[in-house]
Nucleic acid binder design. Structure first.
Lengths: 159, 159
DNA sequence: GTGTTTAATAAGAAATATTCCTATTAACGA
DNA sequence: TCGTTAATAGGAATATTTCTTATTAAACAC
């Protein structure tokens, strides 16, 4: 049986050492893109990341941003999130955490506290071999939207 | 404090009654698109849904597929998933469940069993008002890929 | 049933988002 | 410092999603 705890921390990642360790070339682009995400608190889109890094590195191309984001995601340093309003958003996963997304305004909030266990994968035992990450995504209404907008969303606990 | 159980079932949805109840017109397109997803076990893309329904309804347009999927998602009947290999995938959420996604081949498996509770939202109490859904997404390697490919993914439990 | 109202659709254009192609650059090991 | 080659820039190509507008068909009143 595969059973995964939610809380798995990892932090203080030095991108230079990390890339080197993985046998990847330590390019300015990779380091800067990693930093841009690690230092952001805003779950930026690829476009936002591009604009942010390009200020320091005018030759940067969009292709490099996407390629690097894919690399970082594969390494487990970054997570791609589906945003209710189209387009992908990216978030540093140097520290394991989860997300709350407001269905009204689209704001994404980090949720570091975690308790309990992941869904048991017993029913998938013969089909699943290794767990890489467990991510909980909670959707609902943030306080602001709950009070200001007349929403019509079915909520948990209601019929 | 907001605390949400994972397991919240809902099933046997009659799309006609459901749309009517919500004050939405019961169009052939809506009913057929809903059925296509509800009967699929394959987490189809918008394109796949389009092709499937168009066999029965040749005049269907892609725009209607996207529009209807957005409506169904808003009603909580359908969930949009980010697929590792670009593009969105859709899944019927008539019965609450979770997902395992293989990072190698991209296969998505349903995971109905669930235990534990969602991450505590205590830290977000003042920012979050209402929970609409709790979804757990587990990533890793399916048995097939774990045994056949030489993967280089950091896995949970390893350093 | 018939007519009226208007939400929903089809069609294709437009806007976005993402990936691909190729020549060039620069990281790294010798 | 030099050679090798992974990685990048630039732009084209593709894919995905949304928008615009005329048309259609649900829903409802009669």
């Amino acid at each position: 049986m595969i059973r995964s705890q939610f809380l798995v921390e990892r932090q203080d990642i030095d991108p230079v050492a990390f890339f080197r360790e993985k046998g990847l070339r330590v390019t300015h682009q990779r380091v800067e893109i990693f930093r841009e995400i690690a230092e952001s608190r805003e779950h930026p889109s690829a476009e936002t990341i591009f604009e942010g890094v390009r200020r320091r590195m005018p030759s940067l191309s969009m292709d490099t941003v996407y390629r690097t984001l894919a690399t970082l995601e594969e390494l487990g340093l970054v997570m791609r999130l589906t945003h209710p309003r189209g387009g992908a958003r990216y978030d540093s996963m140097a520290i394991t955490h989860h997300h709350f997304i407001c269905l009204e305004c689209g704001e994404i909030m980090d949720c570091f506290a975690a308790s309990g266990e992941a869904p048991l994968l017993e029913e998938l035992t013969d089909r699943v071999s290794a767990v890489r990450s467990v991510h909980v995504e909670i959707r609902g209404l943030c306080s602001h939207c709950h009070h200001t907008s007349n929403h019509n969303l079915p909520l948990m606990g209601e019929s």
